[in-house]
Design a binder for these strands. Structure first.
Lengths: 195, 195
DNA sequence: TTCATTTCTTAACCTATGTGAACGGTAAGA
DNA sequence: TCTTACCGTTCACATAGGTTAAGAAATGAA
């Protein structure tokens, strides 16, 4: 079951782990399952964990002063998700994390995260690379948000993440793209009609 | 002159450096000056350096297929700027980096970056925290972009970064906020009239 | 100082996306 | 099976922000 974690690490650091290294790594995690619509992290409460998804899906979102939800991140098998700010600072969270489907996750708390990073420079490097990749992707997403119309953002999204399009409700994809569900519906119709 | 670098590091890692540690750190950098409107990094060319700004200002931007510019980041004294993707992967860059004013920078190349990180765990930690802070800020910016109107984004920007509002041309701030200069002008007029 | 260039403002008009509401389909729970 | 809540679609209308164009103001070079 944790094989996908091993692949995830090896792919990220671009080298193999010994069995012993991988065993050390996993010892810092515990596995947990949640129902659909479970809250894994909540705004204004400290986000104590980093989650690695073995099975199922979740997403994080921001709620503004008008109570409107904006999707920050989707996560399915093989993805990591947390509220970075809250996890690392220990301060109240900014985002919610909620499961979309029943989910199996590997859970890492802050203490274990620190120990893990200390135990082997390779692990610290892994988390740095994870963060680096996330940052790069996010910067690109913002550039696109500001420079492309919703239609081309949706097209790019559905090419880059076809598995998301299949599993995630449209109104959440709309929110991720920064538009309303009705607008996404209109865009999809336009694309379909053009074919 | 490099005192502001020392403050920057100590503030980020939340601890003091010994004189010797700081000296080691700075040895990996060289100082350089550029005129206004110099290109420090260019799309499709490898971005070989990370810049720390001692004096002056610069910004990074993305140019889309229609040749339209979108501002990614502003950087003044005490800021770091680079094209992360290109710098760390060695692949062709995605963004441009250009000076806004004549500038003095400390420059770090990839080889020295790696050595610096190896030489002392503290330095590796410093760069990780830098990245972490940048990621958190970027995620928040995206959340706001998708959930607030341009007017409130501008108001928040001018509260969070009053020194930017003073030094950076409005048409670049507009781009940073994801709107056109005319729209920012309209928004500013509306705010002024309301007072 | 003068001239040229860049930046900012204003205005009229346009368009992508938002809003509110209604309808039908589908999945989940009783 | 029935019921209910949720989700996606469509439509008519509203609006924030884009577009085009022109002139004013600021900046920089000569």
């Amino acid at each position: 079951m944790t094989n996908i974690l091993r692949e995830n690490i090896e792919k990220t650091i671009d080298q193999s782990l010994t069995d012993k290294e991988f065993e050390t790594f996993t010892q810092f995690f515990f596995q947990k399952s949640f129902d659909k619509k479970s809250i894994l992290a909540e705004e204004s409460k400290t986000c104590k964990y980093v989650y690695f998804i073995l099975k199922g899906s979740a997403y994080s979102y921001y709620i503004n002063d008008n109570g409107e939800k904006t999707v920050i991140q989707f996560a399915i098998e093989n993805y990591w998700i947390t509220d970075q700010y809250s996890f690392f600072s220990g301060k109240p969270g900014i985002y919610f994390i909620e499961t979309l489907e029943p989910i199996d996750v590997l859970v890492l708390n802050r203490e274990n995260y620190d120990q893990l990073c200390c135990s082997n420079q390779l692990f610290e490097r892994f988390f740095r690379l994870l963060l680096q990749n996330a940052f790069i992707a996010l910067q690109y997403r913002l550039a696109k948000t500001h420079s492309e119309e919703a239609e081309s953002r949706y097209l790019e999204f559905s090419i880059l993440y076809p598995h998301f399009v299949q599993r995630i409700p449209q109104y959440l994809i709309a929110s991720f793209l920064g538009i309303k569900p009705q607008s996404l519906s209109r865009i999809r119709k336009k694309i379909a009609d053009a074919k």
